[in-house]
Simulated assay, not measured.
Amino acid sequence: MNDAVRLTFSGNTVQLRILEPADAPALIDAAADGQLWNLKVTVVPGRSTIDGYIASALRGYEEGHVIPFVVIARDSGRIVGSTRFWKIDSANRKLEIGHTWLSQSAQRTAANTEAKYLMLRHAFEVMQTVRVQFTTDELNEKSRAAILRIGAKQEGIVRHERIMPDGRKRNSVRFSIIDTEWPDVKNQLEKKLARRTSSPDATI
C-alpha cells in the first residue's frame, strides 16, 4: 500500500488525498458545519471520537484493506469531509466506497458527485475492480437517493447488518456498480458534472 500514500485525486470542485493524523482539527471543524456527529443514520466523528476514528482508518490502511481520504474544497482549500475505499478484496477485485460524509454546506453540491466519480474511475480503470459496492442505513433516505443518482443499482436490504453507537440494530441497503456498467455510469456522471460547470446553481 506504499503507493497509496501518494494518491491524490483532483477535480474541478474537490481534491481527495490520503487522511493524516494532523487532519483531526480540520475534520472536527468540517463536522461542526451541521453538527454531523448528532446524526443517527451515520457515524461522523466529534471531538471525543476523532482520535479513534483516524486511528481505525489508518490501521486499516496499514493492513491493506482501507484507503482513507479527506475531501478538500478546491475553492477554499478547506477540508469538507471524508470518504474511503474499504473492504478491499484484491483476490476478488472488489471493494466498497463508504464512510462518506460532507459538511452541511457541501451537501447537494457537486462535491459528492465529483468525489464518487474520481474514486470510481480509479477503482475501475486503475485498480481494475469488477465490483464497487455501497452500503447505507435503511433509514437514510438522502444517502439512498444520492447513491442511486450516481448510477448504482440497489441489490437488497441486509437485516441487522451492524450495531449503531446508540445500540440500534441497523438494517442496511446494499448497492453496487459492476465493471460492465462502468462505461455508462462514467458517461452519465461526466454529463452531470459538465452541467454543474456550465450552471453552478444546478443540483446534482
Rank of each mutant, 00 (worst) to 15 (best):
L16R: 05
P183S: 09
E181Q: 13
G151W: 01
R131P: 09
K87A: 14
T42A: 11
G98S: 12
K94Q: 15
T203R: 14
P200Q: 01
F9I: 03
G11M: 00
Y61C: 14
G11E: 04
K40Y: 04
L58V: 14
R6A: 10
R59G: 13
A123Q: 12
E20A: 14
P165I: 06
L58Q: 15
S105Q: 10
S199I: 13
I28P: 08
D33W: 04
F9N: 02
D137N: 08
L120D: 06
G156F: 11
N171K: 09
N112F: 07
G151D: 04
V70W: 01
K87Y: 10
G77H: 11
P200I: 03
T136R: 05
S198R: 12
M1Y: 00
S103L: 10
S48E: 15
L118P: 04
E20N: 13
P165L: 03
L19G: 10
R149L: 00
S103Y: 09
N187M: 13
I67H: 11
V41A: 07
A32D: 11
G60F: 08
Y117V: 01
G60Q: 10
K94A: 13
G81P: 00
V66M: 10
M119K: 04
Y117E: 06
V5C: 00
S10W: 01
A115T: 08
I157H: 12
A30V: 04
R159S: 09
E181T: 10
I54T: 07
R84F: 00
S90R: 15
G34Y: 05
Q35I: 01
T113R: 08
K186S: 14
I50W: 15
R195H: 05
S56W: 03
A4P: 00
L95R: 09
N12R: 14
V173P: 03
K169R: 11
D33P: 08
R74D: 11
I88H: 08
G151E: 00
N12S: 12
R47C: 09
P165M: 09
V44N: 02
R168T: 07
I177A: 01
N92V: 14
W182D: 04
H99I: 12
V66F: 07
A91D: 15
G11L: 04
R162C: 09
